[in-house]
């Protein structure tokens, strides 16, 4: 359904070129959930923005292909992309969007606007659809007349999800859809996403820094570090048989609610400055397995088992 090939998105700032997404490739099948995880600033949101071609300036997609339903949608004109793809085929729940709802319009009007704009519905037609959408995301349709400030965080997030679903797109990108929500509300939103995904056979790209949430939903997992994919595979491969030192470090740093209390690990240091990344492997300055080739040459991508890719010299040697 979607194949991302060698995507590069850079920000041309006064201080230099920030290589926020630097050669990212992955594949997503119809009805599948793909999780993208990584630390703050590794390029998750920029990847998402690139997929719907809304990279904010001074950012630019500089290279790559986005093959969606058989054609490269990077080649479409902006007008065609807006008419055919954005929101209709690929929509997005933006990071922090629940706090960006317009305070002076009711939530019903805000959802209706999406429908009127893209589907040219009349207000009445749109409102009928709004009630259906609210119902779908678990909000009493009577609340359509509420203003954002009258709703809890969890409900606002449901509204934002309803907006992304308004045109029933086959692919929804959810960027940190539960960050800043309490754990109970987070679980409710995750339940909602799971239900919607199942009932509508949607494909979802779930972006979050929280690997636990990805384990809740995703069939496939992408681990990003400093603008690059360091590991990619099925959820079982990533969680039960992680191969990249960064993935292993991340998993070992998560406290668990059950089982033995092992020592929590950490990864010393901080991610590199993306306008001046280190040569070779970008993880090398923090990697405890670093050896000769690591800071000289970029590691190749190795398929360590079918469908499981790792970008690390440790595996290239074998």
């Amino acid at each position: 359904m979607l194949e991302v090939r060698n995507l590069k998105t850079y920000f041309y700032t006064t201080k230099g070129v920030v290589k926020a997404v630097d050669g990212v490739s992955f594949k997503l099948n119809k009805g599948e959930v793909l999780g993208i995880a990584g630390e703050s600033g590794c390029g998750k949101s920029t990847t998402a923005y690139s997929l719907i071609r809304l990279v904010p300036p001074p950012g630019k997609i500089v290279d790559g292909e986005l093959v969606f339903e058989g054609r490269d949608i990077l080649k479409l004109s902006e007008e065609d992309f807006r008419k055919q793809i954005r929101w209709k085929k690929i929509s997005m729940v933006f990071q922090g969007a629940m706090n960006a709802l317009n305070p002076v319009y009711t939530i019903g009007d805000q959802i209706a606007e999406v429908l009127m704009l893209h589907k040219h519905m009349t207000k009445e037609e749109a409102m009928k659809e709004v009630y259906k959408l609210l119902e779908m995301v678990g909000i009493d349709p009577k609340r359509a007349k509420s203003y954002p400030h009258e709703l809890s965080g969890g409900m606002k997030q449901r509204v934002v999800i309803a907006m992304a679903l308004a045109l029933r797109p086959p692919l929804v990108i959810a960027d940190e859809p539960t960050t800043a929500l309490d754990v109970v509300v987070q679980a409710q939103i995750m339940n909602l996403l799971k239900r919607l995904q199942r009932e509508h056979r949607m494909s979802i790209i779930l972006i979050t820094h929280d690997l636990s949430l990805i384990a809740e939903m995703a069939e496939k997992v992408v681990i990003m570090y400093a603008g690059k994919i360091v590991e990619y595979g099925t959820a079982e491969q990533i969680f039960l048989n992680p191969q990249h030192p960064y993935t292993r470090g991340l998993l070992a740093s998560i406290p668990r609610l059950t089982g033995d209390i092992h020592k929590l690990e950490f990864i010393p240091g901080v991610p590199p400055d993306l306008s001046n990344p280190p040569p070779g492997c970008r993880f090398a300055p923090r990697c405890k397995f670093k050896f000769e080739p690591c800071d000289k040459e970029e590691p190749p991508v190795i398929e360590v088992e079918p469908g499981h890719y790792v970008s690390c010299w440790l595996h290239a040697k074998k």
């Binding site: 109970v184 987070q186 690997l211 384990a215 069939e219 959820a235 969680f239 039960l240």
Partner: peptide, 20 residues
């Protein structure tokens, strides 16, 4: 309820709705 809502980094319960 709080404990039942906490996700864990384990894919074995994938897509199962959590009872809250």
């Amino acid at each position: 309820a709080l404990i039942s809502a906490i996700p864990e980094p384990d894919p074995r319960y994938r897509k199962i709705l959590r009872e809250l």
